[in-house]
Amino acid sequence: MTQKPQEFPIAKARDLVKDLYLPNPWIYWSDFLLSAGVGWGAFIIIFRVPQFSFEQGFSFFIAVLALYRAALFIHEIAHFKKGSFVVFRKVWNLICGYPLMIPIFLYQSVHFDHHKQNFYGTQKDGEYFPFASKGRLFIALHIVFSIFIPIIFFFRFVVLTPLSYLHSGLRNFLIQKISSLNIDLNYQRARSSLAQTKGWQIQEILTCIYGMSFIGLIKFKIMPAKSLIIWYCLLTSVFIVNSIRTLAAHRYLNTNENELSFTDQMLDSINNPGNRWITPLWAPVGLRYHATHHLFPDLPYHVLGKAHRRLLKNLGKDSLYGKTVFSGLWPVISQLWKYSGKQKLIC
Rank of each mutant, 00 (worst) to 15 (best):
K177N: 13
H115I: 08
G169N: 05
S146R: 05
S30D: 00
A71Y: 05
F296M: 04
G57V: 08
T122K: 04
N275W: 09
P331W: 07
S179T: 05
Y120K: 06
K338N: 14
N272Y: 06
D268L: 06
Y21R: 09
K116A: 11
F105D: 03
V17C: 11
Y28P: 00
Y107E: 15
R171P: 01
F220K: 07
F173A: 08
V285Q: 03
L315F: 12
R276I: 15
I229L: 15
Y107N: 13
H111C: 02
R309S: 11
W26N: 11
V64E: 01
H142C: 08
Y289H: 14
I202G: 00
D15Q: 14
N314P: 00
I229Y: 07
F32M: 03
G316Q: 11
C347I: 09
Y165M: 12
N93V: 02
L141M: 10
I333H: 02
F47G: 02
F54K: 00
W92Y: 09
P5T: 10
T255N: 13
T292F: 06
E76L: 08
F60T: 09
E76S: 11
T207I: 05
R156M: 05
V64H: 01
I205P: 00
L65F: 14
F43G: 00
Q6A: 15
V144H: 01
F58G: 03
H294W: 06
P25E: 03
F148A: 14
D318P: 08
I143H: 03
I229A: 12
A190T: 10
W277S: 02
I244W: 03
I175K: 03
L247P: 02
L281P: 04
Q203D: 15
S334A: 14
S334L: 12
N271W: 03
K90A: 10
V87A: 15
E76H: 07
L206A: 10
I215Q: 04
Q201A: 08
W282K: 01
F220Q: 10
C208N: 12
H111P: 02
V64K: 01
K317G: 15
G135Q: 05
T161L: 13
Q51F: 14
V285E: 04
F148Y: 14
L320K: 06
R156S: 07
K306R: 13
K134T: 02
I139S: 01
G322F: 12
L100M: 12
V303Y: 10
